[in-house]
Amino acid sequence: MTYDRYVTICNPLMYPVIMNNILCIQLAAASLIIGIQVTIGLIYKIFTSPFSKSNELNHFLCDVSPLVQLCCGDTFMIETLIYVFATVIIAVPFGLVLGSYGKIISTIMKLPSATVRAKAFSTCSSHLMVVTLFFGSGIIVYMEPTSTHSSGMDKYSSLLYSIFIPLFNSIIYCPRNRDVTAAMGKFLQKWTVP
């Protein structure tokens, strides 16, 4: 979506040429392939390690960090892989998103009309808010040093990026849709008017 916003605002006349179906499929496939490879690598490394007798996770989700806590062998390599993968999958894309939005904002500031600038900021602000919430919670969970790692905080942070961010996503984006706003207004009128 960030690349889509970047092309829309910074290169609008070339949008149909740049953002074609082939590029969209390539971007989705690259995300899928990278995600699968990283997941398989971590799963292999974790499940070839010896586990303690306890098989109870103190967590809401079967995530990497709680599984590593159950390992009774040396987990240095697994933790190093988690940080490397978190950097590749979380920090680098987040940096690219912020860099793209820096370029978008500089382009928006050059627009002649205040109305056009407000519309462009409105288009991008909701996406930037969702991306920041998602990547921010992912950085907190996966890139926090082991010495300061709190399993209680980790549990709630994982809820943030797995449940609440998708919920916020719909809350943030839906009011921008006129049909959703009209339906929400009718629904609220029905319940508030006696």
Score class of each variant (00 low, 15 high):
Ile78Met: 06
Val84Glu: 03
Ser52Ile: 06
Tyr6Val: 07
Lys119Met: 09
Tyr83Arg: 12
Pro93Asn: 03
Leu27Val: 10
Ile89Asn: 13
Pro194Glu: 08
Ile82Phe: 00
Phe51Tyr: 15
Leu57Phe: 12
Ala114Cys: 13
His127Gln: 11
Val131Phe: 10
Gly41Val: 08
Ser52Leu: 05
Tyr3Phe: 15
Lys186Val: 11
Gly99Phe: 13
Ile25Gln: 07
Ser151Asp: 10
Val88Gln: 10
Leu133Phe: 09
Met129Ser: 10
Cys72Ser: 15
Val84Leu: 14
Ser100Cys: 09
Leu159Ile: 13
Val7Phe: 07
Val130Trp: 05
Gln189Gly: 11
Tyr173Met: 05
Ser162Asp: 14
Lys119Thr: 15
Ile18Gln: 06
Leu188Gln: 12
His149Asn: 10
Val141Ser: 03
Cys72Trp: 08
Arg5Val: 00
Ser151Gly: 03
Ser125Lys: 13
Leu67Ala: 07
Met77Phe: 10
Ile22Thr: 15
Gly102Asn: 06
Thr87Arg: 05
Leu133Pro: 01
Val84Arg: 09
Thr181Cys: 12
Phe76Val: 09
Lys190Asp: 08
Thr132Met: 01
Phe121Tyr: 14
Ile105Lys: 03
Thr181Ile: 03
Cys124Ile: 02
Glu144Pro: 00
Ile33His: 04
Leu42Trp: 02
Trp191Glu: 14
Met77Ile: 15
Arg5Met: 05
Leu159Thr: 06
Ile90Gln: 03
Pro166Asn: 03
Leu96Asn: 07
Leu128Ser: 03
Tyr44Pro: 00
Pro93Tyr: 11
Gly41Leu: 10
Ile22His: 11
Ile46Cys: 02
Ile18Trp: 05
Ser126Pro: 04
Glu79Pro: 02
Ser157Pro: 01
Cys71Leu: 15
Val84Pro: 00
Glu79Asn: 15
Phe47Trp: 11
Ser151Ala: 14
Val84Asp: 02
Pro12Ile: 07
Ser126Gln: 11
Ile104Lys: 00
Ala182Pro: 01
Ser106Cys: 08
Phe47His: 13
Leu133Ala: 08
Ala29Lys: 04
Cys10Ile: 03
Pro50His: 05
Pro16Asn: 06
Leu159Ser: 00
Val193Tyr: 07
Leu81Thr: 06
Val7Trp: 05
Tyr161Ile: 02
Ser49Leu: 12
Ile33Met: 07
Leu160His: 02
Gln26Pro: 00
Ile139Val: 12
Glu79His: 08
Val17Met: 12
Ser137Val: 01
Lys186Asn: 10
Val141Leu: 14
Val7Gly: 00
Asp154Trp: 05
Gly35Ala: 08
